[in-house]
C-alpha cells in the first residue's frame, strides 16, 4: 500500500515536470523566433535599408532599401483597417443593439463571422484574383486593400462584439427608458467601449500588415514607392519572401533585416495594445 502511494506521488512529480517543460517550450518558442530574427537581421539593418527604395541591381546585392515595401505595407494595412473598422463596427452594433439578444439571427451571424475568421487568406486571395481577372483589373494596391479588408472584417466584428458583451444589459435598458431610439443607445454603447475600439483596430492592423497569401496574388510587387492605388505595390512580407529565395547572401541578409523591421512593427503594435488594455482595466476600477 505504501509503495503504491510512493509510485503515485512519483507519477505526480514526473507529470508536473513534463507540464513545466511544455510551458517553457511554448513560451520559449516566442523568444526563440524573435531572437533568431534579431540575431540574423541586426548586422544587415542599416539606415539605407529603411530610407530608400530599391535601386538598379538591388536584387543582386547592390544599393537601395525596402522603403517601397514599408510604405506599401503601411498604406495597405492602414486603408484596409480603416475600411474594415468602418464596416465592422456597424455590424457589431447592429447585432448587439438592433437585434434581440440571444436570438437565432444574432447567434447564427456571429457563428458565421467566427467561421469566416478561420478562412485562410489564400482562399480570399484566389477568389479576389479571379474576380479581378474577370472584371479586368490588374494586380494593384486597390486589389490588395479590398482583399485584406474582407480578411480583417471578421476580426473587427469579433473583437468589438466581445467588448460589447461586457456592457451590462441594464445600461441598455436604462438608456432605453429615457426614451432613446436604438441608434442613440448604440452611441452610448460605443462611448462605453471607446478605449477597447483602439485595441480592435490595432489587432486588425497587425493581421493586415502581416498577411502574405492575400496580397501575393492581388497586389503584385513594385520597386517604386507606391503612388497610385491602381498600380502594383510592394509589401513588406512579400519583400521578405522574395529576397529570402535569392541565392545571393547579401540579398538574403536583407531579407533578415526586412524581417526584423516587420518584427519591430508587430512588437510596437502588440505593446500598444497591451498598454491600452491595461489602462482600460485601471479606468474601470
Amino acid at each position: 500500500m505504501r509503495s503504491n502511494v510512493k509510485k503515485r506521488l512519483l507519477k505526480e512529480k514526473i507529470a508536473k515536470v513534463a507540464m513545466q517543460l511544455s510551458g517553457i517550450t511554448i513560451t520559449g518558442s516566442l523568444f526563440f523566433i524573435i531572437g533568431t530574427i534579431l540575431y540574423k537581421g541586426l548586422p544587415y539593418l542599416s539606415w539605407e535599408m529603411i530610407s530608400q527604395a530599391p535601386k538598379g541591381g538591388f536584387y543582386i546585392g547592390k544599393e537601395g532599401g525596402i522603403l517601397n515595401a514599408i510604405l506599401g505595407s503601411l498604406y495597405l494595412a492602414s486603408s484596409s483597417t480603416l475600411l474594415a473598422t468602418l464596416i465592422g463596427i456597424p455590424i457589431s452594433i447592429f447585432l448587439h443593439v438592433y437585434v434581440k439578444s440571444g436570438s437565432f439571427l444574432e447567434r447564427s451571424c456571429k457563428l458565421l463571422f467566427d467561421v469566416l475568421f478561420g478562412i485562410p487568406s489564400i482562399v480570399y486571395g484566389a477568389i479576389a484574383f479571379s474576380i479581378m481577372v474577370w472584371v479586368g483589373i490588374r494586380a494593384s494596391l486597390l486589389g490588395g486593400i479590398i482583399t485584406i479588408t474582407l480578411l480583417t472584417i471578421p476580426i473587427v466584428v469579433r473583437t468589438i462584439d466581445e467588448l460589447l458583451r461586457t456592457i451590462p444589459i441594464d445600461l441598455k435598458h436604462v438608456t432605453f427608458s429615457l426614451g432613446t431610439t436604438r441608434w442613440e443607445t448604440a452611441k452610448i454603447c460605443l462611448k462605453y467601449i471607446k478605449p477597447g475600439i483602439f485595441t480592435a483596430i490595432l489587432l486588425a492592423f497587425g493581421r493586415a500588415i502581416g498577411d502574405v497569401a492575400g496580397v501575393l496574388l492581388t497586389t503584385g510587387f513594385s520597386d517604386n514607392l507606391p503612388k497610385y492605388v491602381d498600380e502594383p505595390a510592394a509589401t513588406l512580407p512579400l519583400a521578405i519572401f522574395f529576397q529570402l529565395s535569392s541565392p545571393i547572401p547579401e540579398v538574403q541578409g536583407r531579407a533578415y533585416a526586412s524581417a526584423l523591421v516587420l518584427t519591430f512593427i508587430i512588437l510596437i503594435i502588440v505593446i500598444c495594445t497591451h498598454l491600452l488594455a491595461s489602462k482600460q482595466q485601471k479606468h474601470k476600477i
Binding site: 513560451t27 516566442l30 526563440f32 524573435i34 533568431t36 521578405i240 529570402l244 524581417a259 508587430i266
Partner: peptide
C-alpha cells in the same frame, strides 16, 4: 504573464515563422 505572450505569438505574421523555419 503567459497568456499575453500567447497573444504576441499569435500576432507574429506567418512570413516571420517562415524566416525562422529557414534560418533555424
Amino acid at each position: 504573464m503567459v497568456l499575453p505572450l500567447m497573444n504576441v505569438l499569435a500576432a507574429i505574421p506567418p512570413v516571420l515563422y517562415g524566416v525562422w523555419g529557414v534560418l533555424f
